[in-house]
């Protein structure tokens, strides 16, 4: 069986986000593979290393030329081959799921791994939208995965706790922190990755266009009081804090 792992390139979580002309401006930001997608790449590798019959692991990304870097990272982590659907048009998850589903079909994969929440658009939709297009089941927010033959078992978070599950492949799985500890690409593997196939494709073939328009973006920071209290005398500090909470903020009785 083959696994497809989705890779998105996003600003580093610590990067300062700027707005110019009502749009997020990524100029100067360090761009990295979305942390949530790293768990997906890592998990695909672990499933194979754990003895599951994984023939091939393919990474897919859409976006401008720069997203190649994120695909190279996936290749250096150990993915076999990458596909880059190159476009300057940003695709919302519903639009992007068209591309992912078609690639999955063309490649004959039976498991798709997608990050649980995008670090740029805070969306959780891509996994589910892709699953629906393919008519496959989905498991979101997984903490544990095991593959035996064509059966996927594991554990995932739900509204009020977590559930263990069993599902026949094909399926879409979304990943999150805690599923595994992603490996760092080693220098030899970074060198090897340069020789791996990174196929370029264009968006035209997929009939995917944005379904949502961004009207504006804005950073609304709440002005904070930043009142600091020295904690050297715990009793005095505690009394001062309580007084502020009761009489200034009026948030406790």
């Amino acid at each position: 069986m083959k696994i497809l792992t989705l890779v998105r390139q996003v600003p580093d979580a610590e990067a300062r986000v700027k707005i110019s002309g009502g749009q997020v401006d990524l100029e100067g930001a360090t761009l990295v593979m979305d942390g949530m997608d790293e768990y997906g790449v890592e998990e695909a590798l672990r499933l194979r290393e754990g003895g599951a019959a994984v023939e091939e692991i393919v990474a897919l990304a859409t976006g401008p030329k720069r997203v190649e870097d994120a695909l190279r990272t996936a290749l250096a982590m150990g993915v076999d081959r990458a596909i880059h659907v190159e476009t300057d048009q940003a695709l919302d998850p519903i639009a992007l799921s068209r591309v992912v589903a078609q690639v999955a079909q063309a490649e004959g994969v039976s498991l798709i791994l997608v990050g649980g929440q995008e670090a740029d658009w805070d969306s959780q939709a891509l996994g589910a939208a892709t699953a629906e297009r393919l008519g496959w089941p989905q498991l979101t927010w997984t903490n544990e995965l095991a593959l035996e033959g064509d059966t996927l078992t594991g554990r995932h978070d739900v509204d009020d706790g977590n559930e263990s599950f069993r599902v026949p492949l094909p399926a879409v799985v979304t990943t999150q922190q805690g599923l595994n500890e992603p490996r760092y690409p080693t220098l030899p593997n970074i060198m090897k990755a340069k020789k791996k196939e990174l196929r370029k494709d264009t968006l035209d073939a997929y009939g995917a266009a944005p379904t949502v328009r961004v009207v504006g973006s804005d950073i609304q920071t709440r002005a904070r009081l930043n009142k600091m209290i020295d904690g050297k005398d715990p009793q005095a500090a505690a009394a001062e804090l309580l007084d502020l909470l009761r009489n200034e903020a009026k948030v406790i009785a």
Partner: peptide, 29 residues
């Protein structure tokens, strides 16, 4: 206890100190 902790950048009220000492005092207060 770390005055440089990023949480203080978004705090309205901050106490630089050890939770093991401050919190019992708060509960007491």
């Amino acid at each position: 206890k770390d005055a440089e902790a990023p949480i203080f950048k978004v705090a309205d009220y901050g106490i630089v100190g050890d939770v093991n000492q401050i919190v019992p005092a708060l509960i007491e207060a």
